[in-house]
Amino acid sequence: MMVPDLAEGRRPYRATQPAAAEVNAKLSVQNLDAWYGATHVVKKVSMAIPARQITAVIGPSGCGKSTFVRCLNRMHECIPGARMDGRVLLDGVDIYAGDIDPVLVRRRVGMVFQKPNPFPMMSIRDNVLAGLTLTGVRPRGGEADALVERALRGAALWDEVKDSLGKRGVSLSGGQQQRLCIARALAVEPEVLLMDEPCSALDPIATTRIEDLMHSLRETYTIVIVTHNMQQAARVSQKTAFFYTGDLIEFSDTDTIFTSPRNKRTEDYITGKFG
């Protein structure tokens, strides 16, 4: 469970001049490889993730899409035996450079997981504030109240829980729990939000609410969503990346991918020939 200093990832910091094509890129991924032990799960992936848009990552299970997004906030390395190589630039800064603290990267690149995971021993309010209290920051009463309200409003949960902030986070429904987790991520004020199949454990109504929420979040945040649901990708995203066995097969505007994919495998996948 150690956070290893990845020998491969340790390079002296140097400012990188953004290439012309990446001027608008919030995250620029360059030649990213990732392994679990001896298994090569992400292979030489390069892509530029645009700011304040929703980028969907689709592909059959086991294609490396989850691992790929976990590399974007250095969560991949938290798993024993995990390893990566390549560069990920956040606003032009390589987050894998030797003097970069992964902990601080994660405060700028938030994450929401597949299964809602509010902290069971905390109230709704404490869950929202967890990002601060965990790191030893104790916001004063008024500020904390304002932050809790802002984050919960941001996650479209405020109206449902404003009278029961002291209740346990785990007492909420699955969909509410997931929005609580989004609120918890927003309270840290990240710039990028990674969502790893955030609706796969939810019912259709809760899923719709999360998708609506994503539309409004897009104005402020850069969002990357992993999904196994192609309709969801088509509904919410502006850009779509198709992964297959660790390779990035195709990456372009969502409209293009779903109407005129260039690659045969992309077409087969979105038309349901496999998956």
């Binding site: 938290c78 509010p118 069971p120 967890a130 965990l134 840290v188």
Partner: peptide, 27 residues
């Protein structure tokens, strides 16, 4: 303590020790 609890803490920008002390140990 489920792995998800540790991941949730780490993803919020807490250090390994902060996650251990404030989430894993209390749980």
């Amino acid at each position: 303590v489920p792995l998800g609890m540790r991941e949730a803490g780490l993803a919020l920008g807490a250090t390994r020790w902060q996650v251990t002390r404030r989430i894993v140990l209390p749980m």
